[in-house]
Design a protein around this nucleic acid. Structure first.
Length: 547
RNA sequence: GGGGAUGUAGCUCAGCUAGGCAGAGCGCCUGGCUCAUAACCAGGUGGUCGUCGGUUCAAACCCGGCCAUCCCCA
């Protein structure tokens, strides 16, 4: 197998609220499975995410809570870090857009694009509060929605009817800080000339026919509507400074600067491990593949704006694939902490072991359409698939060996139909994962677990133990080999549990090496332990969730 | 208002790229088995493929309208 470099970038979560399970399903779990899979097959992986910490939603929140924006960002950075750690989602680096190194990178991009003519100066009309004496972000203006007449519509959007608005559209607009009616004045800003890159983007998208249809369709349509220049600076003070004199009161807008966080993360990781040029191998080697794991809300930024920025800068690899997921919903609605819909990850992890949660979410990952999360389904799926099919398979074989006090000797099973079937499943599994079909991979795994139970039944070791010890040894060894394959396949999804099973089976090398060594007829030093997976009880899970 | 999706068995979802006898897991029913966590295996039950129309010898799949839900609109 030819090994390649794989850069896995994962949407930077915005640091103004806790992560809920919808976020995890949208981007992070799939990315983690994919990263682990790539490492197992021997690819060199760089796995990056980080904390998006600038912008007006954070300043709005800070003002509401009487804190500084930095306090808000610090709090959620720590919280997100902890949540990912608890989920066993192990990025190589989780950067912060408030790092000074990130400002350097963002300013470098800004100047480079400015000098290349892809950023230009211009003016726009913005709300100016005379009482406060400065221009106000759109979100700081409230008024009546011109469409639905909801009285508390924001300057960027109406929460009642969902329409996108301009502050000037509002009837009777008011500054939320001062209560004054804002003036609309001209203000100088910088604009990204997406229009200049339209043709190159179109041509590039036409080479991405292997992407998910929804991503391609969305992107093509977006571009064919005609790209316009887009403002990339704002009149706020919480953001990356503009590296030019005369713009001290303005900042680079968060959507332009946050995307560069992927590069900051890769660079900082390279420095930390003492190989400062490592990141270049992922961004400049044309053989390296760059993946971006995001939710569907992020498609325009990653499929249009980010490639445009990279093209304008020049030399960087463009995204290889953007396997954007749809949404995980809760009873048909979007997860939302503020509206009390669904659960946060931390709440769920108090009630359910991490691998149970990873397993269930992976089994319903919204890869092709929205899918629905429920506690009842979680309990049911974990108990009947993960535990009854796989966990019980491991336990019944281990228990059998222990009960009759057997030592299973290696035999060559490489030509056995059942072994070949398992290897065939494993290959199909690799094919699916290489195409980022996370959910499909899991269903191939489950089918193989069912097949393995069928084989164990057919081989009737409880009969051969009394009449044919050679046959018994052969069949048990074959069962153990299939379990080994299953356990290796499960590792990207449920890493901690797989390692535990690996240990229980007494395989003489580490699970990290498993994908290269499935054909080895090694010994199994099987250890009987307690039941490997304890089943979930719906009522007690619910009780824990409600506390 | 414009755009991207989704709607298939009681439940959760595949199938649609390339039209050809409606699928899986769970649930439920029947049988088998005893190594195992009421587990496992085999067989069965179960659907007007959101809806109305069009194209076709043939439509879950292609085309158009409508309804419901999710997302985006810088």
């Amino acid at each position: 197998m030819v090994h390649i470099k794989v850069l896995i970038n994962c949407a930077l979560p915005y640091a103004n609220g806790p992560l809920h399970i919808g976020h995890i399903a949208g981007a992070y779990l799939g990315a983690d499975v994919f990263a682990r899979y790539n490492r197992l097959i021997g690819n060199q992986v760089l796995y990056v995410s980080g904390s998006d910490e600038y912008g007006t939603p954070i300043t709005v929140r800070a003002e509401k809570e009487g804190k500084t924006p930095r306090e808000i960002a610090d709090r959620y950075y720590e919280e997100h870090l902890e949540t990912f750690r608890n989920l066993n989602i192990n990025f190589d680096i989780f950067m912060r857009t408030t790092w000074p190194e990130h400002s350097d990178n963002a300013q470098d991009f800004f100047l480079k694009l400015l000098n290349a003519g892809y950023i230009e100066k211009g003016t726009m009309i913005a709300p100016y509060c005379r009482k406060i004496g400065r221009f106000m972000p759109d979100r700081y203006i409230e008024g009546t929605c011109p469409y639905c007449h909801y009285p508390k519509a924001r300057g960027d959007q109406c929460d009642n009817c969902g329409r996108t608005l301009d502050p000037q559209d509002l009837i009777d607009p008011k500054c939320i800080l001062s209560g004054e009616t804002p003036e609309f004045r001209e203000t100088d800003h910088f604009f990204l000339r997406l229009d200049l890159l339209e043709d190159r983007l179109k041509e590039w998208i036409s080479t991405r026919s292997f992407w998910k249809p929804n991503v391609v369709a969305y992107t093509q349509n977006f571009i064919s509507g005609g790209l316009k220049r887009r403002p990339i600076t704002r009149d706020i003070d919480w953001g990356v400074r503009i590296p030019l004199q005369g713009y001290e009161t303005k900042r680079i807008y968060v959507w332009f600067e946050a995307l560069i966080g992927y590069i900051t993360g890769a660079k900082e990781y390279s420095k930390r491990i003492g190989n400062p040029d490592l990141w270049k191998e992922f961004y400049f080697d044309p053989e390296a593949r760059n993946y971006y794991f995001i939710g569907k809300d992020n498609i325009p930024f990653h499929a249009i704006i980010w490639p445009a920025m990279l093209m304008g800068y020049g030399g960087f690899n463009l995204p290889y694939d953007i396997p954007a997921n749809e949404y995980l919903t809760f009873k048909g609605q979007q997860f939302s902490k503020s509206r009390g819909i669904g659960y946060s990850v931390d709440d769920l992890l108090k009630a359910v072991p991490v691998d149970y949660l990873r397993y269930y979410v992976a089994s319903i990952l919204p890869e092709t359409g929205d899918s629905d999360f429920s506690i009842e389904e979680l309990v049911n799926t974990v108990n009947s698939d993960l535990i009854d099919k796989y966990g019980n398979l491991v336990y019944r074989v281990v228990s059998f060996i222990d009960k009759y006090d057997l030592k299973v000797e290696p035999v060559d099973v490489t030509r056995d139909e059942e072994f070949l079937y398992a290897i065939h499943s494993f290959q199909a599994f690799l094919d699916e994962l290489s195409s980022v079909h996370i959910k499909k991979g899991l269903s191939i795994w489950l089918d193989l677990a069912i097949y393995a139970n069928g084989f164990f039944n057919r081989s009737e070791p409880w009969k051969t133990v009394k009449i044919d010890r050679n046959r018994l040894n052969h069949d048990l060894y074959l069962s153990l080999k299939i379990i080994e394959i299953l356990t290796a396949m499960a590792y990207p999804y449920i890493p901690a549990s797989s390692e535990r099973m690996w240990d229980l089976l007494g395989i003489p090398f580490r699970i990290d090496d498993s994908y290269n060594r499935l054909n080895e007829m090694h010994t199994f030093d099987v250890r009987r332990g307690s039941i490997p997976f304890v089943k979930l009880d719906l009522e007690s899970v619910k009780t824990k969730l409600n506390n």
